[in-house]
Design a protein around this nucleic acid. Structure first.
Lengths: 244, 244
DNA sequence: CGAAACTTTGAGGGTGTTCAATATCAGTGG
DNA sequence: CCACTGATATTGAACACCCTCAAAGTTTCG
């Protein structure tokens, strides 16, 4: 099979379990209904009834909740290979909004498609559930970060986690990665003000740990950054129990 | 059927979907393997490989993560009718710990039992998935609270949400509820210091909004508290789409 | 070239923290 | 019965982290 045709999701799941030819076919079929969305315009609004989920194949998305006072909290970012709105197909309405950060490409997945795929290939279903559990674990880790880490450690942890996620789909490594986020995105995700985000980034840069600039993250001292953040990638590296 | 024999989980799910006699039987069977745990001693440690899940039938539990520096962040509380460790049966190891806050009673659920129950009664499976989605939505709301609400609103929101959850299993209402948490628990959950929790509680009490004292929460002005917290119970009241 | 979005820096202030001391209460053993 | 201990709650004082407000610099893009 042609490596250039491999989708990010396939690549991600392959890190978890070796997929059979039949499973690869099913995965490819899930990617059939291709759609594009332009940056900045919400795909799904808070409270809107959502029927479909998406598999992100190119670009970045953030999911967030708006507060009555106008501030927003970004709950998570989606990068290529991630699912989008898996939960909103279960609950009648979506409880948060999705905004493409850049122009994106995604495959629409109908509930029926997904259930069919699950029925055909149980192992694939398990792999997808593993990915979903991992996403949930990341939200929990995010919660811990906001509740119990100061701004510096929070930022460091965030940048490291993002790096690990991107590495899994071949978009980054221990040296760094491309990142289209603005400092406002970081602020809304980390529960900080944009001004303070700027100061923290300067601090980390001057300490020779990491540089966030011009759409690129560069790790200068990965080890020391891990230590500062208290970063333990255990929650990302779990191996599923049902797939030995 | 005898109402006194109804488990909290049954009661909770009944608010979501009318259960058939067959489904009630399956639910009762899930409750067979009864166990008890004493307060303060962890049921599951962070990093421990977990094989079983539990349905909490009496008492309170908290799930938390420990930081390298010794502080802890409580991710969620479990009250009667809640599942415990549903995710740690999927991932090989649990990514956080569970501590009973008081002596508790829980039913152990093996993975095989659960899968069997799902196969027998798909509607019940959906109802349980609904409950799980709801738990996830609460974690997200918790994240938003810590990231974007000040201490007062955060506390108000927390006490209100807990009230709603308990009301669903008949353990509280708009007037208040019994609550075995200490101010340290509140601090670890809300990302505050215990000292500040005390001050915030005093403030809310003096403003005639709510009293937290002697193991009891009393709402004095439910409406004004909802307004202060920006509490929108939408994420708790969702109706499932597959069960009309 | 001008407008819009993003970044950077300074100054002052507020929310919540840490440290420290005291109060209250239940349980325990002398 | 009372002193002692440990857990929880309460309060004060000083300080730190992070915020808000304000302004200017930079980059992007139509």
């Amino acid at each position: 099979m042609n490596i250039t045709a491999t989708s990010p999701l396939t690549r991600k799941l392959s890190a978890f379990v070796v997929l059979s030819e039949a499973e690869l076919v099913v995965l490819r079929r899930l990617h059939q209904r291709r759609r594009t969305f332009v940056a900045g315009r919400d795909m799904v609004h808070q409270g809107q009834s959502g029927q479909a989920a998406y598999i992100l194949s190119a670009g970045w998305v953030c999911s967030y909740k708006l507060q009555p006072d106008g501030t927003r909290q970004i709950v998570d970012f989606q990068v290529p290979g991630d699912f989008l709105g898996l939960r909103s197909v279960l609950l009648r309405t979506s409880d948060h909004s999705f905004e493409p950060i850049v122009d994106i490409e995604a495959a629409e997945v109908l509930t029926s498609d997904l259930l069919e795929a699950f029925a055909q290939t149980p192992r694939l279903a398990t792999a997808i559930l593993w990915a979903a559990s991992r996403d949930e674990a990341m939200v929990v880790e995010h919660l811990v970060g906001i509740g119990r880490r100061d701004a510096e450690a929070r930022m460091a942890h965030f940048l490291l986690e993002l790096g690990s996620r991107l590495a899994l789909v071949g978009m980054g490594g221990k040296e760094g990665y491309d990142c289209p986020l603005t400092q406002y995105h970081l602020a809304d995700a980390l529960g900080l003000s944009a001004v303070h985000v700027n100061r923290v980034l300067r601090q980390l840069r001057e300490d020779g740990l990491v540089t966030f600039r011009d759409g690129h993250v560069t790790f200068h001292d990965h080890g020391r950054l891990v230590e500062l953040a208290g970063f333990d990638p255990g929650y990302l590296d779990q191996i599923g129990p049902l797939l030995k």
